[in-house]
Amino acid sequence: MGFIGSVFSPWYAASGRRDPQNHCCLNVATYGPGGRFTMTDRGRSALRQTTDTLTVGPSRMHWTGRHLVIDIDEIGALPLVTPVRGRITLTPQAVTDAEVALHPNHIWRPFAPIARIDVDLTQGHRWQGHGYFDANFGTAALEADFDFWTWGRYPTQNGAQCFYDATRRDGSTLALGIEIDHAGKVREIAAPPLTRFKRSLWQVKRETRADAGTLPQQRLNMLDAPFYSRSLVQTRLNGEVTTGVHEALDLTRFRSPLVKSMLAVRVPRRAKWTQDRP
């Protein structure tokens, strides 16, 4: 993930979030043997932007017109402080023009909900498979406007379905379901019931959409934090069993100063960068 204004950075929060360009990063998370996590908070001098390229320090994302090419040159966070290098190439099957307001201050753009991905990283993570690309834009801190949200993206025979469910701080709720076909056409759908399933290792509440009588199940724990869970989850949607990526974000917990201080261990700050490398 590329961030301008690193929303989970304790350094950005401590700065008052007045200068997002001074808190940018490229976040990489891999799983299984050799798994690494990188989220270095970099200063303004590390950031370069053009119409088709985002460069953050030694790493960059570049849109060729057909492929999103992500060149990674980062250092893993504690406890495995080692280089994380390589290339990820994402090829959208179609690019959508969908834009959804999650809140007056927050926009979600599912650019390429159906894509192919080619991963080649130094830790032995080399594979090809199903991919996804989206973006979020905001003018306020997430924890200022939300208490909790879950997101899920599930491949289906017709394309993919995405669900956003959230509780805003003003007490209102979001319950969004969309379906994207293989041509990139997006339509809003009536979502199956919102169904709770087993909490994460850090006891973050989790729920997603599932047909009545179906209990979603975690198939792979991908990232687990005191306020956040990412996992592969199996559910049933309109009679079709599918496994997709699911996220749960507890922003009430994230507002805690203790949690932000814990994050400083995993999110180092590198304020200076000289753009003199190739």
Rank of each mutant, 00 (worst) to 15 (best):
R270V: 09
P92E: 02
D147C: 11
W273C: 02
R187Q: 11
L54G: 01
P278D: 00
Q234N: 04
W108I: 03
C25I: 05
T96E: 13
G57M: 07
R219T: 09
T139D: 05
D276E: 05
A210N: 08
A29D: 06
C162I: 10
L232S: 15
A264L: 15
I178Y: 13
L47D: 01
P33V: 02
V81S: 05
R199K: 08
I107N: 03
K185T: 15
A101I: 12
V186M: 13
H130E: 13
I70M: 06
G213W: 02
H125D: 12
D170S: 07
W127R: 08
M222Q: 07
C162Y: 04
T274I: 05
K260A: 11
Q93L: 07
G177T: 05
H246Q: 11
L26A: 01
Q93N: 15
M39C: 10
G65L: 11
K272T: 07
Q49F: 03
L215Q: 13
V245T: 14
N221I: 03
G184L: 11
P83T: 07
D224R: 01
M222P: 02
F163C: 02
Q217L: 08
D181F: 14
I117P: 12
L194H: 14
G129T: 07
A77I: 00
V100F: 06
L215D: 15
D211E: 08
M222A: 14
P33T: 11
Q93M: 14
M262N: 01
T64K: 13
R168N: 08
Q157F: 04
A225M: 08
R109W: 00
R66P: 00
F137Q: 15
P192Q: 06
D97I: 14
A212D: 09
T122R: 05
T235V: 04
S172R: 10
D134M: 05
T64W: 03
T156C: 12
Q21K: 15
T53W: 00
D73H: 15
V56D: 01
H130A: 05
P92I: 03
T82I: 13
S172I: 07
V81P: 06
D147M: 09
K272M: 05
I117D: 03
T122M: 10
Y132E: 02
I75T: 12
T252F: 12
P33A: 06
Q157H: 12
L176M: 11
P113L: 04
S229Y: 00
L251Y: 04
T242I: 05
T214I: 14
Q203F: 09
E74T: 09
A46S: 11
R236M: 10
Y164T: 12
P226F: 15
F197T: 04
I178N: 10
C162W: 09
G35N: 03
A98V: 06
N136A: 11
I88W: 01
R153I: 14
P193M: 06
I70H: 00
G213H: 05
Q93A: 13
S229N: 08
Q123T: 03
I4L: 13
P226Q: 14
A13R: 11
P113E: 10
A98L: 05
A46C: 10
F227V: 08
G171Q: 09
